[in-house]
Design a protein around this nucleic acid. Sequence first.
DNA 1: TATCAATATTGTGATAATCATATATTCCGA
DNA 2: TCGGAATATATGATTATCACAATATTGATA
Lengths: 116, 116
Amino acid sequence: MGDARAGQLRAFKAEFFKALAHPLRIGILELLLEGERSVYELQQLLDVDQPIVSQQLAILRAKNVVEPRKEGTTVRYAVRDRALGVLLGAARKIFNNHLVGTQTMLRELTRERRKR
Amino acid sequence: MGDARAGQLRAFKAEFFKALAHPLRIGILELLLEGERSVYELQQLLDVDQPIVSQQLAILRAKNVVEPRKEGTTVRYAVRDRALGVLLGAARKIFNNHLVGTQTMLRELTRERRKR
DNA sequence: TATCAATATTGTGATAATCATATATTCCGA
DNA sequence: TCGGAATATATGATTATCACAATATTGATA
């Protein structure tokens, strides 16, 4: 199991999860799972600056999680694989079972509050 | 949807995925899904230094993904929620469908090689 | 209690991720 | 072809992560 091949595979999986490991990217994916959305729509719904959305979309694009479709001057994005819904669903389930990382979560919560 | 509550939830989910976003941690979890393992066993199977394993276990512990059980001087770890298997399975499926992030993966591959 | 084995923690320097701002690019219509 | 709207990329400052080494803790046993 100190196998190099196994290590690489795990590295790829890690890369994939890294793509999901950001609040805004999760928000984007949750929206896209409901259906195709333009950058502008995402920007409005998530209430963040345009370049930020494009930046995060670029990351999701780089990992093939998401797919752009140009339509004139606007670009509509869609989730590449429906199975992502299953994955997020499983995550939600784990979440509901026993809130993951209570310590971390509380820390995050107070940090959030401090920001305002 | 610019809702603060939704943002917090997404932050928690992101934290959870961050816990999975590391090759070694994935390796640990894959092993633990097969059954309880001591730190020493993990260290041997994954072929890394002891402090590194403990470090990554600490991260998984902090996010409540994994659970320690002391047994004399050794500590055995187990996955907290079986649903994690479902989640990793979904990830595997997405992976097989269309290798996620070909660009990133190739970059990783060559980087791995360079290390040797 | 001294010691050893198993595990955990801490400090540190290097690398990578993130946000915000500014600037490009692309496409369409006047 | 010029201007504006929608997206994208570049850049710099800040923060988070990582691997590694050193050290600390804990528990069993002599």
